[in-house]
Nucleic acid binder design. Structure first.
Lengths: 298, 298
DNA sequence: CCATCTCGATACTTATTAGGTATGATTTCG
DNA sequence: CGAAATCATACCTAATAAGTATCGAGATGG
């Protein structure tokens, strides 16, 4: 039995006449007669009573008509849904983020993507950098977001945003009142660094900048993420260098200051990573959204 | 797209390997490769990632796999159900009965049929003889039960049972105490006759018997059916000739008596009627049940 | 009441397409 | 680096669906 048989059968049942049905199907009458006979023979059931006026469904035929229509509708629906899935418009995307990345750029990105692809279920997973790479390789996720990524053979790195580094410091701190804040001013002030965990990471960027400026940072405390860092700033543990997006965190007693001598390398990247060989249309659509988002003035 | 495509697709998805799938399908590998390509082309969707280790479903492929399995199961179910319908094991049978036929033989018959064909929904309609014939012709019913039927061109009549006529009479009636009740004894006793309505019917049978015995019945009352007749016997309106099956009706104060001189024609038939050209397997199954039921000692 | 029409069935031919054989291209693995 | 495994391609054969012409049984209408 074929879907053709069902199509033919439904048409004959609707027209109650083989000739008219054949015309509607754009074939001639004899093959249609034969296909119906074939269907009846295969089922072992008489589906039509042949009368001199045409074809009349038997009770079994009535039942089969309902089933055939249902099956045809399901086939159409399956086709449509599969095509939508193939175009990246239907399905699921597992995305990994790191602790404090959920601050500014990524939520906007996800919101854009959800608006453009409402039937793609985006599932967020919080993972460290190492966990993200392992999860990518095991295909538990399709995209990860992170900073300070080192190239790998099988993982593509796509820059999403570059953020300037700002200084988070207590409202009453001596540096707060300087007209021109320079990076070298940090030399003697205790600093909160983050994140602990896998290297290289943001912490190395900060230490590198200090070294370039000719000093070793005075480390007050190492913490897990920017949120904790800024919380400690509020508590007077010291100052903390944070990416610009962290300014979303408004702590009472904490202010953010830009450096007036910011060198070109004094910013930190945010990238997304995915398997190089991943051809998933949903990923492709997601990367398009990332591109669209990325094109904004520096 | 064909059901073949679905079958092939599901097999390849299950084996994750075209060669093994081809073996399971008892075809060679190249045509299977082509059919899968064809399916992908028609859908416009990549269903598999080809790797040197085999075929791996894409996300769209996973979705299509679920749909394809579902469709295949439905096709199988549709086939099965249609075949059961074609064998008269599934469907609906509309049966007409007359007022008091629901007393003995017909309920037993219907019960037998329901046990043998539990998935055939039997729908009972109460109709007069004329209504039954009209409903048969309009295909609103498939079978009718009645008595005293006259042959028609398009309607087949199949005898179901022959019942002796008994006399229903009040417990205190003078005839109750006669050792040998003869038909001619009815000559002077007021009788209740039934049914009113289309002729010929049971009433004509009774009048005919009286005429044969050489008298005109004294008509006390004409009523619609046996139930009403026996009820009036209980109320003292007179005696009433009823088919044997009416003895199921046990009224206080009413007794039934057999005639000792019952002539061969002193019984009444119960028949079923159906369209001569009706080839419905459900009807055929029902008539088989009627035959099986009919074979019982007189 | 017979000619005519309608409808499905059949016989035969043609065209399409599924399936088979042989082989190629590529990757993995010992 | 050779061998094995995997899917893809080219080409041919076989199965089957579709087309043409015609038949035969009932209805229809002058």
């Amino acid at each position: 039995m074929d879907l053709r048989h069902l199509r033919y059968f439904v048409t004959v049942a609707e027209e109650e006449n083989i000739g008219r049905a054949a015309a509607r199907l754009h074939i001639s009458q004899p093959p249609l007669t034969r296909q119906i006979q074939q269907l009846e023979e295969e089922l072992g059931v008489t589906l039509f009573i042949r009368t001199p006026r045409g074809m009349e469904l038997t009770q079994a035929g009535e039942l089969f008509l309902a089933e055939a229509r249902n099956i045809r509708a399901l086939v159409e629906q399956a086709t449509e849904r599969t095509q939508r899935a193939g175009q990246g418009k239907l399905g699921r995307l597992d995305v990994a983020i790191f602790g404090s990345a959920i601050l500014d750029v990524i939520p906007k990105l996800l919101l854009n993507f959800r608006n453009a692809h409402p039937d793609v279920k985006v599932v967020l997973h919080t993972m460290t950098k190492a966990e993200q790479i392992e999860a990518l390789r095991q295909k538990r996720i399709s995209v990860g977001f992170n900073r300070m990524l080192v190239p790998l053979d099988d993982i593509e790195i796509k820059p999403v945003a570059t953020e300037e580094l700002l200084l988070a410091l207590p409202k009453e701190h001596v540096l707060t009142h300087k007209a021109h804040l320079r990076f070298a001013d940090l030399r003697t002030h205790p600093m909160i660094l983050f994140p602990t965990g896998a290297r290289p990471s943001f912490i190395d960027k900060v230490i590198g900048l200090c070294t370039e400026s000719g000093f070793q940072p005075v480390i007050s405390q190492e913490v897990g993420d920017a949120v904790t860092g800024v919380a400690l700033v509020a508590s007077g543990f010291g100052v903390c260098l944070v990416p610009e997006s962290a300014t979303t965190l408004q702590f009472p007693g904490v202010v953010y200051r830009r450096f007036t001598d910011a060198p070109p390398n004094m910013n930190v990247d945010l990238s997304c990573i995915y398997r190089k060989e991943d051809q998933s249309p949903i990923l492709a659509a997601f990367l398009l959204t990332v591109d669209a988002h990325g094109h904004r003035p520096p």
